[in-house]
Design a protein around this nucleic acid. Structure first.
Lengths: 146, 146
DNA sequence: GTGTTATAATAGCAACTGCTACTATGTTCA
DNA sequence: TGAACATAGTAGCAGTTGCTATTATAACAC
């Protein structure tokens, strides 16, 4: 059996993305864009670098996601008055409206994904995956460990 | 907390891919290509359609992965004598050599990913993720349920 | 036998991802 | 002050993924 945990996680994540995107196609927001926006909501005015670190993607990856979100009118790049190299990211009012609908879909999908799992199993699943994530995370960025 | 299971799985899977690819860069084989090859090894001569279904990707996605693997000399498309629309997929000898090295890397990485988990926890993790996967899987393809 | 429908694979388009290399700006130090 | 270094973000390239549409072939219906 080469069904290692890596492949299994990949498969499952891909199926989740696919299901999410299939349901939100009309809204024009993908699973990952939605996630980015939920982070942004809690970090209004954050710069791209720290946000990229927060969600653990490369700066360039984030940069291009922001490109698309800005083009869609969901996110705004504002010049940082203190550093002319940097942007500060802000959500537009339009994003708020959109997100209420999407949040519903996301919650439903999550419920379906964990269908049949008890509360305890669900908690355990999250805890175990988080441990795997932190195992994989620390070996890439030994720079900070807080 | 919007750390839903979907995002968590996605994050973890991405970190796994990243770590894998970082270690196998010289070999020229990515995590997903390697996985495809391990499937192919157990299904020599399979056609693209069934293989795509097996690994649950769209046929076009598989088609392009095969393009790259064929170009790299790891996989061969042979005409199907019984159906001129179809290809039969075969591994080349070169793939065998390559894979022994990659398998080592994959095993090491898996060990690191589950570092700190007991045998029981590891088993439980796999079992729980598999249940989530099957929850997500069945809702896309109600066609077959065996 | 010919027309309709189904199937195998691919083409175009677009989103997500990371690597290396680059530009522009800020910081430090001599 | 001016050079060396660091940081914020982007450009080019390539791999993975899926949607819709298309081509070529097969299977079926009449």
């Amino acid at each position: 059996m080469s069904e290692t945990i890596g492949f299994l996680l990949n498969d499952t994540a891909r199926l989740y993305r696919r299901a999410f995107n299939a349901r939100t196609r009309d809204s024009g927001v993908t699973a990952l864009q939605w996630r980015l926006i939920t982070y942004l909501r809690r970090h209004e005015g954050i710069r791209q670098g720290p946000l990229a670190e927060l969600i653990e993607v490369e700066p360039i990856t984030l940069s291009r996601m922001i490109d698309r979100l800005a083009e869609a009118g969901l996110v705004e790049r504002r010049a940082d008055p203190a550093d002319r190299r940097a942007w500060r990211l802000h959500l537009t009012p339009r994003s708020g409206e959109l997100l209420n609908g999407v949040r519903q879909i996301a919650e439903t999908l999550t419920d379906e994904a964990i269908d049949g799992l008890s509360e305890a199993e669900h908690n355990q699943l999250v805890a175990l995956v988080e441990r795997v994530r932190s195992n994989l995370s620390r070996r890439e960025c030994v720079k900070e460990d807080q």
